[in-house]
Design a binder for these strands. Structure first.
Lengths: 232, 232
DNA sequence: TGAATAGTGTCTGTGAGACAATATTAT
DNA sequence: ATAATATTGTCTCACAGACACTATTCA
């Protein structure tokens, strides 16, 4: 007679309804760039990197900010759950997103055992129609105490961005169709948290871009060309 | 009348058994290097990269190979489930492992909805005591049809290895304490699936290594020095 | 004109690819 | 000596950091 392993015996007799269930959620770190016009006459725009947060109106962590997210339905894929949440909060389909990491600490949700599959999403804010969510500047986000382990998830998402920015084209998903190299550089500097040399940056990035022939205007200094991403 | 806390109100109304449950498993791609002595007199060793597989003895996919894995208990973290499975199959604690990706296609397990959190592990085969598992050469693994979506998981794990090998020190976890640069290069070549130039390889890797002063013997050619990894 | 930013030119150091040259061992 | 692999030397090319220099606009 074949000897069965413990795992196989377990599987044979496994009936999920007899066990304390584990719920699966998705939580999404949505990044977007906002422009704040600081000088209307000279059209001086200041950019900042923002994360989409939701103010919780229910237990637990009522009144605190959390990442947009929700339970994964038993008949939908994880990716579909992410798309559903993104559509719901931004009105958009086809947002760039990728899986970040799955967080499974035992006490991370006080209600019950919840495992969260975290995603990163990058979106052009000019296309977004917000619903029950706010853009919060990344500097402020790092000051806030967020619900669940969401501060930790955001830390990890920033590490991922930092790690991928130099060998992928993900940043372009947070930019509008047309942008200047300075604007692009500013986002790199925010994500990498250090200053870059304009000359070197331009040279490394230029072959991913297409010239539009158009320029910024009324900037109070030499205008800069507007570019588009080749992969657009 | 006593005022109830938010938590009490929530728990009163929440009944997890009303929902169709989703089960969570871990599946682990364990990599190890085996040496096959092809010429006993001259001690000619041929290396190969292997993956640890389990032969399934029950429905579903009975008779096929699958990755070692198991259900995540409702009171254990995902990492702990991985450690438990690794201990069970290899007898070892402290195996290097990292989370790969979470796979959540709806039909991936014919029994019920199962979401699998996949991990990569790298282990020195000389320390392993196998239990209900076999080392299968990676070339053979890619020929086989595996249970569930495990072929896909292995493909992704190889991509991850390929991506990380050049900017991390993960490879060293599959090597024994002492090894030659040629052996190290052979593993790089297997993972990257291309030949490397010995001179260039040596120069890029040498500053991660410590000389032991000892040499291989009876190889039929100039002996090579045995090195250790600095991070050991 | 001067302030401010855009964009170019050029030098230098680093590091990988290519490959020639030398070293050491066993048969 | 010869075969086989280890190890070193050196040339070249690509590329990023540094920084000086030129260009263009608006106040």
């Amino acid at each position: 007679m074949l000897k069965r392993t413990e795992e196989e015996i377990f599987l044979e007799n496994y009936n999920p309804r007899e066990y304390e269930p584990i719920a699966i959620t998705v939580d999404i770190v949505v990044f977007g760039v906002l422009k704040i016009t600081t000088d209307n006459y000279r059209k001086l725009d200041k950019q900042s990197l923002n994360i989409l947060l939701v103010s919780r109106k229910e237990y637990p962590f009522k009144g605190m900010y959390s990442l947009p997210g929700g339970f994964v339905g038993s008949k939908e894929t994880i990716d579909d759950a992410v798309k559903r949440v993104l559509k719901n909060k931004t009105g958009l389909d086809n947002i760039y997103c990728e899986q970040l990491y799955t967080f499974g600490e035992v006490g991370r949700d006080p209600r019950m055992r919840v495992i969260s599959c975290a995603y990163i999403a990058l979106v052009d804010t000019t296309k977004v129609q917000l619903k029950d969510a706010e853009w919060i500047d990344i500097d402020r986000v790092t000051q806030l105490t967020l619900a669940f382990d969401h501060s930790h998830i955001i830390d990890e998402s920033l590490k991922r961005l930092r790690g991928k920015i130099n060998y992928t084209d993900i940043v372009f998903h947070v930019l509008p169709k047309r942008f200047t190299i300075s604007e692009l550089q500013e986002i790199y500097e925010t994500i990498l948290n250090k200053k870059l040399l304009a000359a070197a940056f331009r040279r490394t990035i230029i072959d991913k871009l297409v010239e539009t022939g158009e320029y910024t205007q009324n900037a109070g200094h030499r205008p800069s060309m507007l570019f588009e991403w080749k992969g657009f």
